[in-house]
Amino acid sequence: MQKTITIQVKRYIPEKQPTPFYQDYEVPLETKWGVLDALTYIKDELDGTLAFRWSCHMGVCGSCGMMVNGQPALTCATFLEEYLPGPICIEPLDHFPVIRDLVIDTDAFMGKLKYVKPWLIPAEERSVDDGENRQTPAELAAFKQYTLCINCLLCYSACPVVGLNEDFLGPAAIALAQRYNYDSRDAGQTQRHDVLLDHGGAFDCTLIGECSRACPKHVDPTGAIQRYKADGAMEFWKRLLLPRGAAKR
């Protein structure tokens, strides 16, 4: 029976060596170990210099996304047994600048997230004395799926458009805009049209669907973008024909 498995890690330590290199580690093949457990084993027992991000170990904080054998994956929710007999190749997520080893630079994404105004824009401000907004289970269901994004960025890694066009808002940011657009408490769609119709917005997406396949939380960004294209096309023509007449929503 196989006792160990080889983990092949793409390393990059800019201060020490200007070009990336691959390093092999032999780790115990334990049942229940995720790829992340193998990486923490390496860090603790074999090589303290390996750098990677992780935190919750339960697939919800979104820190530990990496390329595993060429596919974007959450390493805490991807198990060694799925890759027998190995080796398993771990690389930083595609389409991002690399800071070091498996740590990517996500600042551009953080900017895009803010750009789509991902907060509730109510028709009128309420005070707590006005009490709760009513929202039926059906109204909740209309946007609930899009609230489930953990910002793990696997979709950005999977999306070929992100790889070619750095201005593209990308799947998670557009799905998040739609999360608020479809919330019955929100009236901010007009403001978000300004962003989503612009250069780098939803119409840059070619609907290949890789983002939805990569998403570990079944958010379906492709679906969110497709729905936007219908709404956005209508808005586009309204804006063209009636410069100030586009309906407020």
């Binding site: 509730l120 009490g131 907004n133 039926t136 289970p137 109204e139 946007f143 609230t147």
Partner: peptide, 22 residues
């Protein structure tokens, strides 16, 4: 209750009763 209502006003997707109450 006031703090939780503010979360509601900020868009937290609380689970709901059939009539739309939290």
């Amino acid at each position: 209750p006031k703090e939780l209502l503010r979360m509601e006003h900020w868009g937290c997707p609380w689970s709901r009763e059939p009539d739309g109450q939290v």
